[in-house]
């Protein structure tokens, strides 16, 4: 490709559209779960968001790309990817990840975000951010931390209100 052709390709809207689509992954929503919502105005509701993710790899797409190369090596790699994909069959959300325990620290992250433990409006979202071959397997949790005005002023996050277990805490 000469310099002029390269320049023309680089400035074409189609080229940038392809780059944009390739780099901004498509978002796939798998599951949504909503917890109890305490909207009583005796305490302030502070919103928070926690996101945990792991990289997923699609053996199927690796195989397709390897075969598209139309070489012996590509065909072999494609066959290998097909064999790997056979071991990853079954119901799943998103692509397989190396460690399936990536979201286990969520409970500690929740405690960090809301030390009072008075959490409400908890929404758990399982989604995938899909790119070519790889994907971001995401577990996102949004919610509200209930805090008293006093704890907000102190900045400690500790609630001084009585917690009797019937205040709508999730």
């Amino acid at each position: 490709m000469n310099l002029k052709a390269f320049f023309l390709t680089a400035v074409s809207p189609l080229f940038w559209s392809v780059i944009l689509l390739g780099t901004s992954g498509c978002a796939v929503l798998h599951k949504v779960q909503l917890g109890q919502i305490d909207a009583r105005d005796d305490q302030k509701l502070i919103p928070f968001e926690i996101m945990m993710s792991e990289t997923g790899v699609s053996a199927e797409e690796i195989g397709a790309i390897a075969r598209a190369a139309q070489t012996n090596g590509g065909d072999n790699a494609g066959n290998l990817a097909t064999i790997i994909a056979l071991f990853q069959m079954g119901p799943q959300t998103g692509n397989p990840v190396y460690s399936e325990r990536y979201a286990e620290k969520l409970i500690y992250a929740l405690y960090e975000k809301c030390p009072t433990g008075r959490i409400t409006g908890l929404m758990s979202i399982r989604e995938t951010r899909k790119y070519p071959v790889i994907s971001g397997e995401i577990v996102k949790v949004t919610g509200f931390c209930r805090k008293t005005a006093k704890s907000l002023n102190e900045g400690t996050g500790e609630s001084t209100g009585k917690s009797n277990g019937k205040n709508g805490d999730t």
Partner: peptide, 22 residues
């Protein structure tokens, strides 16, 4: 689909329908 932000309004909508309640 480039984001799933459309579900963010769900909690806000429920809260709006139940002011000062659970």
């Amino acid at each position: 689909n480039f984001n799933n932000d459309f579900i963010d309004d769900l909690v806000t909508d429920l809260k709006r329908q139940c002011p000062n309640g659970v």
